[in-house]
Design a protein around this nucleic acid. Structure first.
Lengths: 257, 257
DNA sequence: TCAAAAGTGTTCGGGTTACACCCATGG
DNA sequence: CCATGGGTGTAACCCGAACACTTTTGA
């Protein structure tokens, strides 16, 4: 804040701003990337789908508000929501992004494992996991579009969030956030392939992941099958590392349609 | 915003939030990284240094406000400020970050070439370029600290901004934003070395930059000397590319003290 | 003639890529 | 016994790190 606007501290001297959080919650299920959407029950955009979110309470930080909303919309306990990976995306402040009043929204991105369908409790009644169109490389010209646009500027927020997570998979260990507590390397590879919309070479992927200290840790116990068939795969859990050195760059050309 | 809080649209139903922008404006001069700071003229934190910034006007987006404040504080014309590289850093919303009222601040990072000292005009009277302590690797335990803490949570914002620009130099072409319109490869290398606090191998740096299409473009004209001595160097200007493929990773160990 | 900075060349090793091949399981 | 997915091995290749060396200028 500036030292040059002393009158700024009368809370009612300016047109008030409302501050909200919006959440782009992603998961991978059935080989598709899904995002959590809620159906709006009122104008404007009544009946349209929107990202979940809500207002900051008077003594709440944006991150706290985001976790609270996430717990409400997904039906998770606040305990569980507190552990989920949440990351601030950016803030959207165009004056007319909400037709009724000035609303500044802090957007967050969350990556969650394949959760059960949002419970009916409260807000979650109108929440659905919605598959994203088959992945195209972020920023590609023919970027696919969902049939019905989302409310407000949420299409923009969703696109930004999608680009961000694709980039983050390259140089962080975030992909494990999409996986259950115990996962196979095949499942981890499917995360990358689903988000990026590419096919990766399994032997190379395997070596790359195992060669990065702290990315995954082997876990004793029963091997498991990723698909219906094939050899059971060893189980791993997420390691302590958060960055990927060197990065796992996504291939450029040749992504699947 | 949520579909579940219909009362949310009465502008006065909630304690109002003030929304501000804060700017971390960096430049490289005399081989040191500098940040633009302003001296606070009033309580709280009277006499302390702070990041420049100010309130959003009623119909202004955060980015517009940031450019306006940047022009005011640096004495640049709004035309020039419109062309500068500005990037949203993140939003700070802790309830008590301002002791007087609820202030949510959208922080921006700007990279500018070595500008003249801020003009005395208006707000810029109390603005100064302040050298950052000799660079240490971001996240290192013994991270250096400036003698006097900044006002509010601006130390935190500055640290976040510093980390961000260091990381951005790795995989974007942003370093040219620190350079004048015509620059030598030696000057560009000094930007990297100053921000990262490391020494780079000149031959390898040169090849890497020239091998990246669109990073820099050769410019006809008089060669120039970077330091006082030595062979005059060819001039370049920033190219059209914005991302660096493959990235220019900073070396890990061996940074200079 | 020396110091300083620009610029060129070359070697070496690690990491990625591409692909061949074997193993374990269910149908 | 075959399809499917897990897992190992290997050779080619690319790129970055390291360093030797030449060129051009000012002092």
């Amino acid at each position: 804040m500036s030292a040059t606007r002393p009158e700024g501290y009368d809370p009612y001297a300016f047109e008030p701003f409302a501050v909200t959080v919006d959440l782009a919650v992603f998961t991978v299920r059935e080989g598709r990337l899904h995002v959590l959407l809620v159906e709006r029950g009122q104008e404007p955009y009544q009946g349209a789908w929107a990202l979940p979110g809500g207002f900051l309470l008077p003594r709440e930080s944006a991150e706290t508000a985001a976790r609270r909303e996430l717990a409400e919309e997904t039906g998770l306990s606040e305990r569980t929501a507190a552990d989920l990976h949440l990351e601030q995306l950016r803030t959207y402040s165009e004056p007319d992004r909400d037709p009724r009043m000035r609303v500044v929204s802090v957007a967050y991105t969350a990556l969650v494992p394949d959760l059960p369908e949002p419970r009916g409790g409260g807000d979650a009644a109108h929440a659905r996991w919605t598959p994203l169109p088959a992945a195209a490389p972020p920023g590609a010209p023919g970027r696919d579009r969902r049939p019905a646009p989302l409310a407000f500027d949420h299409d923009r927020i969703l696109a930004d969030a999608y680009d961000r997570i694709g980039a983050k998979l390259e140089y962080t260990c975030l992909a494990t956030a999409f996986c259950p507590p115990r996962f196979t390397l095949g499942e981890l590879q499917q995360v990358y392939e689903t988000v990026w919309g590419v096919e990766l070479d399994r032997p190379n992927f395997r070596r790359k992941v195992l060669a990065t200290p702290g990315f995954v840790e082997a876990v004793e116990g029963e091997p498991r099958r990723t698909g219906g068939r094939g050899k059971p795969a060893a189980l791993y859990r997420a390691g302590a590392a958060s960055v990927l050195h060197p990065p796992l760059l996504r291939p450029e050309g040749r992504q699947q349609t």
